[in-house]
Every structure is written in C-alpha cells, then in structure tokens.
C-alpha cells in the first residue's frame, strides 16, 4: 500500500451562474464523489464557486506545445476574419 497515490483529478469551478467552469488546480481522491467533496474544501472555502466539475487527470488529452506552430499559425494570416480588416467610412454609424 505504501507510496500508492489516490488518482489525480482536475478541478473546474463555475464561480457564478452565467460564467463557464474554469480550471483551478488538481487534487487526489479515491473516487469522483470524494473528488467533489475535497474540491469543495480545497477550492471553495470562501464562496468561490456555485458548481464543480471533476475529471480524472488521465482522461485529459492535451495538445503538444511543440506543435503549436502547425496548430495555430494558419490563423495568423487570416486577418480578414476580424472586423477591423474592412475599410468603412467614419460617417457610417451603428456598425
């Protein structure tokens, strides 16, 4: 039993109705129920949340930072996707 960790869980908190859940950190727990209870104690001692998501860390797939260029560079030369790309006269209002 020695040196055996409980599984690691990633914790996401919705700070108030209308906002999305945001990652706040991680913790160890035996199962999802305990993960939520522990997250309540560790991450919401001062009313920081109204809703908690827990996801076992091993289920998260992350993009590889070294592939960042290949993933994100194609967006860099597509300035026409932004509203400021379009030249319009100053007298045009409400747009």
């Amino acid at each position: 039993m020695k040196n055996q960790n409980w599984p690691l869980w990633e914790i996401f908190i919705r700070s108030k109705q209308g906002l999305n859940h945001k990652h706040v950190g991680s913790l160890h727990a035996a199962d999802e129920k305990m993960a939520i209870e522990n997250a309540r104690d560790v991450y919401t001692r001062r009313s920081e949340g109204v809703s908690i998501w827990v996801v076992e860390s091993k289920h998260i797939t992350a993009s590889d930072p070294s592939e960042g260029e290949a993933l994100y560079e194609p967006a860099n030369d597509k300035v026409y996707r932004h509203p400021t790309f379009y030249d319009l006269p100053d007298e045009l209002k409400h747009m």
Partner: peptide, 23 residues
C-alpha cells in the same frame, strides 16, 4: 484549515512537473 489548503495547492503545482505526491 487554510494552511492545509495551501499545502494542497502547492503539492498539485509540484505534481505538474512530473513528481508523485506520495514520493
């Protein structure tokens, strides 16, 4: 209780560097 919480935030930050809590 806050001190315990601080310990836990920090252990979880350390674990992102590839170490195990138990170790």
């Amino acid at each position: 209780q806050d001190e315990a919480g601080h310990g836990l935030y920090l252990y979880s930050a350390a674990e992102t560097l590839g170490v195990e809590r138990a170790d």
